[in-house]
Design a protein around this nucleic acid. Sequence first.
DNA 1: GTGTTGGCGAGGCGCCGACAA
DNA 2: TTGTCGGCGCCTCGCCAACAC
Lengths: 397, 397
Amino acid sequence: LVLLTELYISSMPSSQTIFPFSVSEEHKCLNSELWHACAGPLVSLPAVGSRVLYFPQGHSEQVSASTNKEMESQIPNYPNLPAQLICQLHNVTMHADAETDEVYAQMTLQPLSPQELKDPFLPAELGNASKQPTNYFCKTLTASDTSTHGGFSVPRRAAEKVFPPLDFTQQPPAQELMAKDLHGNEWKFRHIFRGQPKRHLLTTGWSVFISAKRLVAGDSVLFIWNDNNQLLLGIRRANRSQTVMPSSVLSSDSMHIGLLAAAAHAASTNSRFTIFYNPRASPSEFVIPLAKYVKAVYHTRISVGMRFRMLFETEESSVRRYMGTITGISDLDPARWPNSHWRSVKVGWDESTAGERQPRVSLWEIEPLTTYPMYSSPFPMRLKRPWPTGLPSLYGG
Amino acid sequence: LVLLTELYISSMPSSQTIFPFSVSEEHKCLNSELWHACAGPLVSLPAVGSRVLYFPQGHSEQVSASTNKEMESQIPNYPNLPAQLICQLHNVTMHADAETDEVYAQMTLQPLSPQELKDPFLPAELGNASKQPTNYFCKTLTASDTSTHGGFSVPRRAAEKVFPPLDFTQQPPAQELMAKDLHGNEWKFRHIFRGQPKRHLLTTGWSVFISAKRLVAGDSVLFIWNDNNQLLLGIRRANRSQTVMPSSVLSSDSMHIGLLAAAAHAASTNSRFTIFYNPRASPSEFVIPLAKYVKAVYHTRISVGMRFRMLFETEESSVRRYMGTITGISDLDPARWPNSHWRSVKVGWDESTAGERQPRVSLWEIEPLTTYPMYSSPFPMRLKRPWPTGLPSLYGG
DNA sequence: GTGTTGGCGAGGCGCCGACAA
DNA sequence: TTGTCGGCGCCTCGCCAACAC
């Protein structure tokens, strides 16, 4: 039912290089720009070959979110599985569910041995935030956009920015647009500029697209004009009560056990294991660059009462900052995951509509405002246990 | 995306009683007759409260079939997990995927302690094969049935058997039929008897059903006229290259590990665990009544060369017997699952089109023809290890 | 600048028997 | 007995501008 198309970004010459869409038609490559645009401006994938931290806790949260079921208490403990694993990231492939176009990434991780941890630190491992495309727009579909009664109303600025210019000597000005989706399928639309007042519209071809992708009002579409003068087309479904399955394959408990046991086994044997990261289902990234973690945990001093900023995605696929105050620092799950930095920071948000923002975040997700603290705490945060392996030596080089 | 409706058959007064469809509308009960009709004539669920054997190997096969991926070799061993677990079956609920209508069952199992194994044997635990409904028909959809050009051609005998009789004084004779699917949704069809030569047709309402369920030529529909004079309507999709997802949630390796670790943990603590059984995805039942197992393994003597029969499902949802010869008896996976009876019998099939029938079966799936052996083997099968716990004492009562 | 609606033309949906396998 | 097709009526899709906010 669900087939996958994939792009082996490990074969990319550099993570900065933009991967041409049609390099290998036989692999039906997934366009990296489009994948990232669909994933959202805040999502970045660590570089292949770099060292990362993997959080089983965060992975578990993704399974809970995907199955709509909390983990039961009957799950066995894995005493040898630490709250975070330092891993080598061997491979990252981008995927899209052929049914729903939901984007996700597959990563191959290998826990590092204490010996390997002593390797010199590579500056490149800081990673670079995935560049969002510049020539693009994202619109949330209205009732009119999705009804069978008409086409798609293109916001004026968007049309002028990302669509090829129309020939205004024609009456009415019109052209045929062709856009490729994540799977490489081509969609044709008639782009016309008409009406009183004049406006940009997509007419013929639009309803086929809407019904094929089963889009409804509230979902979003995303057009990109890339450097190869190609039009790319992605979709983002609204969060309608979790776009997921309780899985008729495996109980959610077994899934939780599975990911924990897989990680524990990989950790004990230093062997590779595979995980899926679904950026729009997961509450937070659970595979992060080692350098990002080290910077946040070892080079940042935070304390209760400190002010901070944090990035969030807006409806229009851009970012904005929300402000808040740190209200506490403690383990999220002291029994199962003691001394974990995963969501160890309790926070309060400035804006009263903050009910939707999570009350706990991780250090590397926030931007502390050290210059203007609201009030300083007499208890600055200190690490209870220093890093057990020789991590600081990573800096010695 | 996928919501579930369910029927707690554990609340049924007896497994023989037919559960009325509309007893509890608030639970949106799943009709047991319809579930079994969709599952097929060979599928039976063990009785709630009875003792069963659970085969991790078979469960693993279901995951492989569902994810289209074989288990990799990196899976850890679970030395304390035997090839079969004797369990108490605490709960069985029937489900249907809200997206695809695919039927599956959820079972809660609890491994029995050696002490509990000594409990007297209950004759009721032999279980009774689920009765297939009598007034029903199943038709594989033709190109005409699924095209937008027309309706559904009802086979004459089927219409006369399961649909209410038409009033033949009208010209043409026609009526409105209402049928409920697994989720309790009602579908209305115009049933008319017309054409030259005369035939039964479903016209108005049919194409809505076809497009809503996304049926294509090759899929099957199934109508049941039950004892409450209700018309039930189920679907069975053709095996189009496995109707499944490689799961953007969890890697298939983690799933395999998950089911094994969950079973191993439950076995070591004698605690309950939950599994999903998908009869149309799984090659074989992997939860079978203990009595069935005991009868097949301890009360049947088989040998190489012996002739046997085995039941298979036909296109029209009835059963037929295929004949074959036992060609060997050995472990399917001697390294991982030594001394397992799961698919321990190697067989050859009489009919040359036998490529689709599995080359290995389990003892309890076949019907040895002890009266007419083709030739008798000098090496009758003997159990290598007698039952480790006091199983034979179960018969003492 | 853009979401919705009434108007209306055309294409495909869907009902019919003919025909053949 | 039943799968497919040509015929064709009508309904809904889908293009248009008007209008409102």
